[in-house]
């Protein structure tokens, strides 16, 4: 289990991570989400002992990373941005870390095979594509067959086939009871992979729950407006629908959990004149965007039904 406890990091005047707490349970894939600059990489670097927290702590199975004797056997971690010597071959890259992880050259070759790089084993990393680098980074994390995987933006640069392969790999690992934490700045990229989500923005936690709970926040509602407000109220009350005054200043209402067709039919039956009838669909991604404060004017998808 990964546990992040009141973690804070300031770089000069930048508060990259701000009193962040969350836990990551084993047996599931957890998505660590947030927009660019949210503090994901900084949090992971603190978890991995590369960056010293300003305050707070982050532990893996109750231990700080630095206190784990042979960390490569317990935690497989890959951080964003290629960290390869361009003159080294893929196999040599793994062989460099093999002694500390305590594995043989044979294991290095097997892992290259597993990530689909066996053809490129003897090629220099300098000539690798972004996707190949991601695969090699992943190979490095898998070397010690770790119980905990920490991956920063592992899907960056992977082709659709690669993304599917990564998804299956992560699900397989979680299925074996391992702990898997993957960061991403787009929810849709990991939506089909993760069971839990931890969402941060501006260094702070904005949401942590199973993905299903986040999905439940994705609602739909209808905007409806009439010159005869009381008649419209009566028509809506007649159906027992929950509604509230419209937020965007139009003289009208937001009706929850119904379709535009239903509202239109109710108004028609009651003989109420309508000036606006709009279906508002809030997708999961929109929930993510509004949670992380990225929801701009057009983020909520609007379907005009009638006017």
């Amino acid at each position: 289990m990964i546990s992040v406890d009141h973690l804070t990091k300031t770089f000069g005047t930048v508060r990259a991570v701000d009193d962040l707490s969350f836990t990551v349970r084993p047996g599931v894939v957890t998505g660590f989400l947030g927009p660019n600059g949210a503090g994901k990489t900084t949090t992971l670097r603190m978890l991995l002992g590369l960056v010293a927290p300003t305050s707070g702590s982050a532990t893996i199975d109750g231990r700080a990373y630095a206190d784990i004797a042979q960390p490569g056997r317990v935690v497989g971690a890959a951080l964003e941005a290629a960290s390869f010597h361009p003159g080294r071959t893929a196999l040599d890259h793994l062989r460099v870390f093999a002694p500390q992880v305590g594995v043989t050259d044979q294991r290095c070759r097997e892992i290259l095979d597993m990530v689909g790089l066996s053809e490129a084993a003897k090629r220099r990393v300098g000539g690798f594509s972004l996707g190949m680098r991601q695969r090699l980074a992943l190979a490095t994390t898998l070397l010690g067959d770790p119980q905990v995987l920490v991956l920063d933006e592992p899907a960056n640069g992977l082709d659709p086939g690669g993304i599917r392969w990564l998804r299956e790999l992560l699900r397989y690992f979680a299925g074996q009871g391992r702990t898997v934490l993957v960061s991403s700045h787009v929810l849709s990229e990991v939506q089909q992979t993760v069971d839990d989500v931890v969402i941060i923005a501006g260094g702070r936690l904005v949401h942590a729950s199973p993905l299903a709970d986040l999905a439940a926040m994705a609602t739909r509602h209808v905007e409806v407006a009439s010159p005869d407000e009381s008649a419209l109220r009566a028509a809506l009350d007649g159906r027992g629908w929950a509604y509230a005054p419209s937020r965007d200043g139009v003289r009208g209402f937001e009706v929850e959990g119904v379709t535009a067709a239903e509202v239109g039919a109710a108004a028609f039956a009651a003989g109420v004149e309508l000036h606006a009838l709009t279906q508002q669909v809030v997708e999961l991604e929109d929930v993510f965007l509004s949670l992380t404060g990225q929801a701009a004017g057009g983020a909520v998808e609007t379907t005009e039904v009638a006017a």
């Binding site: 590369l50 630095a66 960390p71 490569g72 941005a81 960290s83 390869f84 010597h85 870390f97 992880v101």
Partner: peptide, 18 residues
Amino acid sequence: TSEFRYQTITPALLADPR
């Protein structure tokens, strides 16, 4: 300096944080 230039210091310190 290569460790810093190519950021290989990151995987190096992940392999052994000491």
